[in-house]
Design a protein around this nucleic acid. Structure first.
Length: 194
DNA sequence: CGCATTTGACCTGCGC
DNA sequence: GCGCAGGTCAAATGCG
């Protein structure tokens, strides 16, 4: 499929690009994922809550979608069911404080921190049982913005970074992030008001 | 000096 | 009730 030459405004833009059902690649365009995308969306792409299930970007050979119930760590790390439930409960706790959507994906990158156009403040680091690599916790440093993200390296292949966004920005990205790449929609058009 | 990061302590919920 | 694990807090530290 042909991506219109629209600048990516933020990491969320790219996520939405992949998640938009209107952009679901046709069968004739399975290898059309642009090579100049700044990061590689690989076999880890999950959506939850308000993101429709059919929205996942499925067709590129390097993209594999996990079932929605297999959110973040559980799918990526093949943890036990009990760990999954614990994970979800942790999410519940979190959502009590701020009802939020979650978007998790895996990128291949040397850098843990991808420039998504927002300013993040690190507030925690934790070694988790499901992975030998520590998990880093970030919070959007914009005043009043409750968006959080978790970043950790993949258990089996540390060249991959697993990022989980939680929540919705209540402001625009302070600066453009991934430029020269292609997207068609901004998160705000999907209720992700960034 | 101000701000971001680090890191150990603490909190919360679940399973046993 | 206790221990475990994930998530968060906040004092200490580092850096520009």
């Amino acid at each position: 499929m042909q991506f219109p030459p629209v600048e990516v405004k933020s990491m969320f833009s790219l996520l939405i690009m992949f998640s938009s059902s209107s952009l679901m690649p046709s069968s004739s365009s399975k290898n059309a994922l642009p090579e100049d995308v700044a990061f590689e969306v690989d076999d880890y792409l999950t959506f939850a809550d308000d993101v429709p299930e059919e929205a996942s970007f499925l067709s590129h050979p390097s993209v594999h979608r996990y079932p929605l119930v297999q959110a973040d760590d559980c799918a990526a790390n093949k943890t036990k069911i009990t760990d999954c439930s614990r994970s979800k409960d942790a999410g519940k706790r979190s959502s009590k404080r701020s009802s939020s959507s979650k978007v998790a994906f895996k990128t291949k990158s040397e850098l843990e921190i991808l420039d998504d156009g927002y300013k993040w403040r690190k507030y925690g680091k934790k070694t988790v049982k499901s992975s030998p690599n520590p998990r880093n916790y970030y919070r959007c440093s914009s005043e009043g913005c409750q968006v959080k993200k978790k970043v950790e390296r993949h258990r089996d292949d540390s060249s991959f970074v697993i990022t989980t966004y939680e929540g919705t920005h209540n402001h625009h990205a302070p600066y453009p992030a991934i430029t020269q790449h292609r997207a068609v929609e901004t998160p705000s058009s999907h209720g992700l008001s960034c």
